[in-house]
Amino acid sequence: MLLIRCPWCGPRDEVEFHYGGQAHVAYPEDAEALSDEEWADFLFMRDNPLGPFRERWYHVHGCRRWFNAVRDTSTHRFVATYRMDEEPPA
């Protein structure tokens, strides 16, 4: 079971969290202006890299804060977690 460092609560067991998919995928400013293809790309298409991946997590059974993380998908190791208002680490 992963140990995930909530930016607010510190390290907690994975069971306290929900996974939230790829991070930094912004909801389109003007969804109506998108073509079907562009909208489908936003709706369905996500990256699936082997290696570091920026993703969202939700501390659902703790402080109920969403935050971002960089996790290495090949090892499950968290490189960093950061608050929604923080820039991702370089």
């Binding site: 929900h18 939230g20 912004a26 909801y27 969202r56 939700y58 659902v60 109920r64 804060r65 969403w66 929604m84 208002d85």
Partner: peptide, 13 residues
């Protein structure tokens, strides 16, 4: 409730 929090925290802070 989770969905409300998700949109408020991640898209429309």
């Amino acid at each position: 409730l989770d969905r409300f929090e998700e949109w408020l925290q991640t898209e429309w802070p």
